[in-house]
Design a protein around this nucleic acid. Structure first.
Lengths: 259, 259
DNA sequence: ACTTGGTAGACTGTCTACCAAGTGCCGACA
DNA sequence: TGTCGGCACTTGGTAGACAGTCTACCAAGT
């Protein structure tokens, strides 16, 4: 994400630099440090810099980010509450290792949350928002087609996020947001397979919303999530008949190198 | 106030809620202080010891609970993340003052979450759990009848909690749990009015679950929540035709000036 | 070979002290 | 009366210290 730029240079400035290096410029801190640390860490977890199961040592992270233990602790506790890491008392934090049934449960929760959101969004569809949705559909489909998986996944997130926001329900927004981020973490490898069909469904969904057809919107969103779950299972059983957790290794793609 | 010295006796409460697989007996794990503080504070917020809108000063709470600032800070941040308090940077925490549309949104979210939970619970109803549900129904109804509102509200919470747990989906459990506690906070005054009908609905719901009728269970849960919302609105418009939220009265408390 | 006991190191949980910066309030001043 | 400046308070963040606990490893005993 974009906050990275400034922050990372600021934060990662001096691992063990002495207190008064003349070159270190302390940028204005608009947001509390713990917030920045939180985002930096989620980013590192999602992009794999911090591998699953890794033991996160407070002082180590603190040094890595150029802050003291406290903000790190606070960030870690939030990450723990949201399920990104597991905090064992007296030992510390480990990056969460997802159980096999976890994606299932996540998608089930998402189905409930987003299907309801879609219903409420359709209940009173805002003109501008609908226009934006249509845009996102077009953008997403073309990104998908051009093979920009990261972009498509991101756009997918924006689209779903916008729909939940249209529900006007801040709790749905919040919960669905959390679920979405988690899903995105586990799910990126599925996107290439599932992509094309997914975007066709998005279009139908947006249409139902703009028509104000509540039941249809909710229904489509439900099926949409259900298809995603199926795709995940197919990929899983195809890619890892016995090896279990090895999938992410095999399917991880380096996207920066065009192939 | 009895918070005086050994807060352990006050806060360190019941058995730990670690998910225990059969055969593994965790002896005794001292809960981190921040956890105890968190629970003490939510309790105080719910029962009104800390009134809505009140400015929470870290060092004050720390003294009150007999701990240092650190655990209090960590607890406050969690409370902030979960919406119990609002943390204003540079100023501090205030106990959250619910907006008037907030209960609506909360109940809408709960409808989605718990209706889905009820569906999943009905999908494969566990014998023991169903028996427990029936118990709770009986207990709740009798508590309601005998006028023990607090007890009825608590039992209501247990019943809903058990149903979400029966869904087997930890995310639904988690989210619904958060929503439920919040609802319980705002909602206690409604319980007396709504109570009797509510418990009749619970019985029908439990029956649907034990029959394995998914659609019916989901449907009943939805209507159940809907009725609750209606009751809330009725009570509200009856009790406060004009004054609305002015419950908070304009008390700017002077804390240190001589009075 | 397997268990037991001991030991050492690492890390967290918590406390204390301290400082800089932001916020709200109150009173002085125009 | 209204506005400005300053004061007191509080948070946000840092540093260091210390006890308790967890892990790992090694040595001795069975």
């Amino acid at each position: 994400m974009f906050f990275g730029k400034d922050l990372m240079t600021t934060i990662s400035a001096g691992p063990d630099s002495t207190s008064d290096s003349p070159g270190v410029r302390h940028v204005k801190r608009p947001t509390p440090l713990r917030e920045s640390v939180y985002e930096a860490l989620t980013e590192m977890i999602i992009d794999g810099t911090l591998e699953r199961g890794r033991h996160l040592v407070e002082v180590e992270l603190a040094g890595m980010l150029g802050v003291s233990r406290q903000p790190v602790r606070e960030a870690l506790q939030r990450l723990n509450n949201e399920g990104w890491v597991d905090l064992r008392p007296g030992f510390g934090a480990m990056v969460h290792v997802p159980a096999e049934d976890e994606v299932d449960q996540l998608l089930a929760a998402r189905a409930a949350l987003e299907s309801e959101s879609a219903r409420l969004a359709a209940r009173n569809p805002d003109k501008d928002a609908v226009a934006k949705l249509k845009d996102l559909c077009k953008i997403g489909a073309s990104l998908q087609e051009s093979g920009d998986i990261d972009g498509a996944v991101r756009t997918n997130g924006e689209l779903h996020g916008l729909i939940t926001e249209m529900s006007g329900n801040r709790f749905l927004v919040d919960f669905a947001g959390q679920v979405d981020r988690r899903v995105r973490w586990y799910y990126t490898p599925v996107a290439p397979v599932r992509g094309a069909a997914s975007w066709r469904e998005h279009s139908r969904l947006v249409k139902a919303i703009s028509d104000g057809d509540e039941d249809k919107a909710a229904q489509i969103m439900r099926e949409h999530t259900e298809h995603t779950r199926k795709a995940y299972h197919d990929l899983r059983s195809a890619a890892a008949p016995e090896e279990g957790l090895v999938i992410e290794k095999k399917t991880t793609r380096r996207r920066r190198s065009a192939e």
